[in-house]
Amino acid sequence: MFKALVLEQQEKTTLASIQSLQDDQLPEGDVTIAVDYSSLNYKDGLAITGKGRIVRQFPMVPGIDLAGTVLNSQDARYQEGDNVVLTGWGVGEGHWGGMAEKARLKADWLVPLPKGLDGKQAMMIGTAGLTAMLCVQALQDAGITPEKGPVLVTGASGGVGSVAVTLLAELGYDVTALTGRVEENGPLLTQLGAKQIIDRRDFEEPARPLEKQIWAGVVDTVGSKILAKALAQVDYEGAVAACGLAGGFDLPTTVMPFILRGVNLLGVDSVMSPFEKRQAAWQRLVELLPASYYEQACQEVSLDEVPTKAEAITNGQVTGRVVIKL
Score class of each variant (00 low, 15 high):
Q279Y: 12
Q213P: 10
V218S: 00
L178D: 00
V268Y: 02
A194Y: 05
I324N: 03
A138T: 05
A230K: 00
I198G: 11
L289G: 05
L46V: 12
Q25C: 04
L71R: 12
D36T: 07
E147P: 02
V111F: 14
L134I: 03
D75T: 02
K43Y: 08
K277E: 14
G97H: 02
G119I: 04
Q137L: 08
T314C: 01
V35L: 13
L134Y: 03
W109K: 09
A291K: 14
F2V: 05
L285R: 00
S162K: 10
L113W: 04
Y42F: 06
E287G: 10
D304E: 10
T154F: 08
D24M: 15
R261M: 08
A138H: 03
L210C: 07
E170Y: 12
G52S: 04
T166M: 14
E204Q: 11
K106S: 08
D199M: 09
M133W: 02
K229Q: 05
A297R: 05
A169K: 03
D36E: 08
K12Y: 07
Q79K: 15
A216Y: 09
L139C: 12
I214A: 01
D75S: 07
E8A: 15
N185M: 07
S273W: 13
L210P: 09
Q10W: 10
L105C: 04
G172E: 13
L231V: 08
I197L: 10
G248C: 10
Y236V: 12
E205C: 14
R56C: 15
G149I: 09
A246I: 08
G180E: 07
G119N: 03
G316I: 05
A281F: 07
L7M: 05
D141E: 15
G247E: 06
L46M: 05
G119S: 14
A242I: 04
S224P: 13
V268G: 01
R261G: 07
T166F: 12
P114V: 13
Q25Y: 08
D23M: 14
I18M: 05
V255H: 12
Q283D: 11
A177T: 03
K225F: 09
N185G: 11
L46K: 02
V153C: 12
D199R: 14
L134R: 00
Q74W: 07
V61F: 05
L231W: 03
L265W: 10
H95C: 00
L168E: 11
G88T: 09
R321W: 08
L245N: 04
V222E: 02
A122I: 10
M124S: 06
G244S: 09
G45S: 02
W96N: 00
T190P: 10
Q279W: 15
E93T: 08
D24L: 07
G92S: 08
E147Y: 07
E11T: 15
D44C: 13
Y37M: 11
